[in-house]
Each structure stands twice: as structure tokens, then as C-alpha cells.
Computed example of a mutant assay.
Amino acid sequence: MGEGIGLNTNNPAGFWIRFGALLLDALIVGVPLVIISLILTGGSGDEIYTNIISFLYTLLLPIFWNGYTIGKRICGIRIVKVSDGLPPSLGTMLLRNVVAGLIYGFTLGIAAIVSATMVGAREDKRSLHDFIAGTEVVHERL
């Protein structure tokens, strides 16, 4: 138990740093994926491979890379479990990405707007998908 309970809870990452990490992930990972997809499919509009790789990136990289994606690492923030401050597990990331994604889709994006508002307004900066998965996004410790 190297991290310990609650070591990161007083340093939550806010809206703009999380948004910046998301933009960096889109630029560094998303744009090359779209270009490769266009080359492989000849521009047929079939984005299934891009969607699968993007999904696996956001699902698996935080599990294997201590709560980071490339954008989060550059911004100095990471995903941790609220219960113990450790990086997320596969079950945690499935809740965070799949279950929350379904909720965002079923509400036609209204829940995503509520979630972004929560990150901006709440003291703990936790979003809807953080509550669903029991996670938080924190600044890495110096």
C-alpha cells in the first residue's frame, strides 16, 4: 500500500486542467488515429477502428500507467480511487467510461454538462463519472 488513504484528496484537479489534458489526448492520440483510419479505409467514413482504439486507450492506459493518459501526464494530473488513492482497476475504469458514457448518451449530453459543471463548482472537483466509479482526478504529488 504505497499510496495510502487520502494522500491525494486535498489536491483535486479542476475543470481547466482536466479540459487541457482532454485536448492534449485528442491532439496527440486522436488526430493521428483519424489520419491512420483515413489512410486504411480510404476515407470511407468507417470509424470503427478509430473508436475501438480510442476506447481501449481511455480504458486501459490509466490502469497500466498509474492513472495517467498522455494528456494527464503532461498536465501533471491522474485518476485515483477515492477509497485508497491507488490507480484505477479494470472494473473502476469500466464504471468510469462505459456506465458513465451510457448515462451521458441516454440523457443526450445533459449529464455531461452537469458533470462538467460539477468539476467547476464542487470543492472536491469530482464529476458524475468520478462518483459512479469512486474516482477523483488529482494533481500528482511533488
Rank of each mutant, 00 (worst) to 15 (best):
T50D: 05
L22Q: 09
I28D: 01
N66K: 02
R73C: 07
I28H: 00
G20M: 11
L27C: 10
T58F: 14
I52P: 03
G67D: 08
L59N: 07
F55Y: 10
L56T: 02
I48S: 15
T50V: 08
V29Y: 08
L61F: 10
Y68S: 07
T50Q: 13
F19P: 13
F19S: 15
S44F: 04
G20A: 15
L33Q: 11
I53S: 08
P62K: 03
N66A: 01
P32T: 03
D46T: 01
T41W: 06
L27M: 06
T41D: 12
G71I: 09
L23C: 15
L40I: 06
N66S: 04
T69C: 07
K72G: 10
L59P: 04
G42D: 15
V34C: 05
L33H: 08
G43T: 06
T69N: 09
L33V: 05
P62T: 06
V31G: 05
Y49W: 15
G71H: 11
G71C: 10
T69D: 13
Y57C: 03
V34E: 13
V29S: 07
I36Y: 00
L60A: 15
T58V: 10
N51I: 00
L22H: 05
S37W: 02
S44R: 06
I63R: 08
G20Y: 04
L27F: 10
L38F: 13
G42E: 15
G30T: 10
I35N: 00
V29A: 08
F55H: 02
T69A: 06
L33D: 14
S37A: 11
V29E: 12
S54E: 02
G45I: 05
